[in-house]
Design a protein around this nucleic acid. Structure first.
Lengths: 157, 157
DNA sequence: TTTTTAGTTCGGCATTAACCGAACCAACTA
DNA sequence: TAGTTGGTTCGGTTAATGCCGAACTAAAAA
């Protein structure tokens, strides 16, 4: 595990940056998630994570516990081994969708308010664009909801 | 303009928070955008913005210039009046879509890489969820693209 | 019983972000 | 020409973020 290919390192970084933004994680936390996504499903131990991520034990502890709490990662143990091994769960995808749905709903409230403001105004150059955007949000909302449903169905298989 | 209703203030705040996240604006910049969205299309002068937003001239200057540069707002002048009057353009909606499309494309790259990693692995509990998520991203991408096209069509009317 | 392992807690440090105020400037006005 | 208006620039302050190290703990191992 000491030697991780440059290729993989770049991927971990990329994935990290992505989740950092989407899930509002700190850089280190996001990198650890990226690492666990890329790593084999055998999981990585706490020590391995500290080593590969080049971070302190305390920081790793904080990050790992946050990710566990979000259920973005999970851990398991091996017989005759005190260590916990961590691996990515798939819940981060579900989480992202939940977050996104929330954001879209806020957006819909706001755009509806704005559309309403400008309903009876004579000078309104932008109303049409707002309505198109509103339609976009509706479709987006529907897409998210359907995806969440599909994933839920699998989870309760 | 001194007395803005509590109702409107709350709306400005809400809209501000939304755009702060979606467009990566600072709190003040986002609040100013919110203010100009809510304000009448007569526009607000620089002084009015400083007053209502309770910010310093320097901060308002920075924020306004950034918003102008993003074309999220625009200004106009009145005859016999040196002041510039600012109002929201509708370009912030377009901007958000461009940003979102970019983010979605990144997401697609990443999830495809991950799906590929796990293609030939024996132990793969999550592949199905990833494929569903992938499908979601495709639909989302298409929706954004179509919306951008519609808006472009209007712009070049 | 002592030592080691696996991880947690907590105080602190360094960087950055966000905003401010004072000085400044260019254009108009009296 | 002197003063005012409508902003801009820049150095500095404040607060929050993100990470670290050292000390600690609980359980297992020796």
């Amino acid at each position: 595990m000491n030697q991780i290919s440059t290729e993989k390192k770049k991927q971990i970084e990329t994935i990290g940056l992505y989740f950092e933004k989407e899930l509002d994680l700190t850089p280190l936390t996001a990198r650890i998630l990226g690492l666990l996504i890329v790593a084999s499903s055998d999981g990585l131990s706490f020590d391995q994570i500290t080593e590969v991520s080049c971070a302190s034990k305390s920081s790793v502890s904080t990050s790992v516990n946050l990710l566990l709490q979000l259920k973005a990662i999970e851990y398991f143990t091996k017989p005759n081994d005190r260590k916990r091994y961590f691996r990515a769960s798939s819940n981060h995808l579900y989480l992202m969708l939940i977050d996104e749905l929330d954001e879209v709903n806020k957006g819909i409230d706001i755009i509806d308010t704005i559309i309403d403001y400008n309903k009876e105004k004579k000078v309104e150059r932008y109303q049409q664009i707002r309505l198109i955007f509103r339609e976009y949000l509706s479709k987006h909302q529907k897409n998210i909801q359907e995806t969440l449903d599909k994933i839920s169905a699998i989870k309760n298989n």
